[in-house]
Computed example of a mutant assay.
Amino acid sequence: MKKAILFGASGLIGSLLLQELLGDESYAQVIVVVRKDLGIHHPKLKILIGDLRSLPSLKDQLVGDDVFITLGTTKKNTPDEKKYYEVDHDYPVLASTITKENGADTLVLVSAVGPNPDSKIFYIRTKAETERDVASVGFAHTHIFRPSMLMGNRKEKRPLEKFLIGVFRLINPVFVGSLSRFRGIEGTDLAKAMVIAAKKKEAAFNVYEWKEIMGLLQEQR
């Protein structure tokens, strides 16, 4: 039986992914690293309290097989670009490095659609640099997910995002062909696809946009 390690369990995708992992018989234990206790109790769940700076002190406990990273922030919550970069880039890279050194062989990372290292947009450039540096850690299997609009109920109130989700539900069918990667996706679907991907051991490096994510879900049905 395998062990899963999850970083970012308090966010929308992380919380949904946690439920998927706890319900999956393939995993005997699910280790999560969060800044504060989740208030969730489950016989398979092990909660570690930590962040970017305290992560090295938790290294001996970060031993598992499949690593899932759903870390991220927003400009509203983290307006300072240096701190934003620490959350979106430095933390995932450090988490990847530590778990790989401890023997994990599979990494599943949530990125975003359209990453570009040459972009003038800080968010897009950061995502590209995170993908690049996480991939360079050298897991036997790396799975990068690039969703567009994430649809689901968040704990925090985001009125504009709620409005945009409603818009995406209406216009999703318009995105066809090469534009399909911009389709919005339900958070529950993304979480399920990530678990499916972690079990695929064929290729060393994999990228999933909307079409590929839907393909994973179809394989499961």
Rank of each mutant, 00 (worst) to 15 (best):
T126S: 07
V137D: 09
D133P: 04
L55V: 02
G166T: 02
I121W: 10
A197H: 13
G166V: 02
L6Y: 13
S119Y: 07
H89L: 11
Y91M: 09
N116I: 04
S180E: 12
Y27T: 08
L164C: 10
Y208S: 06
K157T: 11
Y91E: 02
L190P: 09
M151E: 01
I185G: 13
K46Y: 11
L62D: 01
K82P: 02
M214Y: 09
P115Q: 03
T142F: 15
Y208D: 01
L107M: 15
S148D: 01
L164N: 11
R132Q: 12
T99N: 12
L18F: 14
F7I: 04
L52S: 07
L21F: 11
L38I: 08
A204V: 05
D24K: 14
L164E: 03
T142W: 14
A140L: 12
R125L: 00
F122P: 05
I47T: 15
K59F: 00
Y123K: 03
K201H: 15
S96A: 15
I144C: 03
T106A: 09
G23K: 14
M151R: 08
L94K: 12
M194G: 06
Y27R: 13
D65A: 02
V137Y: 11
L6S: 13
S148Y: 02
E101F: 03
F182D: 03
G39Y: 14
R125W: 01
K100E: 03
